[in-house]
Amino acid sequence: MSGSPVPLIDLEPWFHGAAADRAEVARRTDEALRTSGFLLVTGHGVPSPVRAAARAAARQFFAMPTEVKAAYTVGVGGRGWLPPGAEANAGAEGADVAATPPDLKESWTCGADAPTGDPAVDEVWFAPNVWPHEVPALRSALTEHLAHMRALADELLVVGARALGLDEDFFTRHTGHPSYTLNINRYPPLTETGEPAEGQFRIGPHTDFGTVTVLDREVGAGGLQVDVPGYGWVDAPHEPGAFTINIGDLLSRWTGERWRSTRHRVLPPQDVAPEEDLVSLVYFYELDPDTTVEALGPPVGHVAAAPVRARDYLAAKLAAITVH
Rank of each mutant, 00 (worst) to 15 (best):
A70R: 15
A112W: 03
K69I: 10
A71V: 06
H206M: 06
A95R: 14
T291S: 04
Q270M: 15
P307G: 09
G232L: 12
A26F: 06
D154S: 03
V272S: 15
V293S: 05
P178M: 09
A163T: 09
F126T: 05
A90H: 05
A18R: 09
D169V: 07
F209C: 06
E123F: 14
G45D: 06
S36C: 07
R217E: 10
G80F: 00
H206P: 09
P5W: 00
S252A: 15
V46S: 02
H148C: 10
L39G: 02
A98K: 13
V46M: 10
E198M: 13
D235G: 04
V226A: 05
E168L: 04
D277I: 12
L11I: 09
P237L: 08
F38N: 00
G223V: 07
P298L: 03
A53N: 05
T292N: 05
V272Y: 07
A242T: 11
A112K: 04
H16Q: 14
P128N: 07
V226I: 15
T116H: 11
L40M: 12
A52D: 14
W233Y: 11
E276M: 11
E67A: 12
S2N: 14
D208R: 02
L314M: 14
Y313L: 04
A306T: 11
N246S: 05
R263Q: 07
E276Y: 08
A112P: 05
G232N: 11
D235I: 05
P84V: 05
T35N: 02
S261K: 04
E87N: 10
L11F: 10
A86Q: 08
I245G: 00
T109Y: 01
G210H: 03
E87S: 04
S36I: 00
A86M: 08
L166A: 03
A63G: 13
P307T: 10
E192C: 13
T193K: 14
V228L: 05
T29I: 12
A53R: 08
V234N: 06
V68K: 11
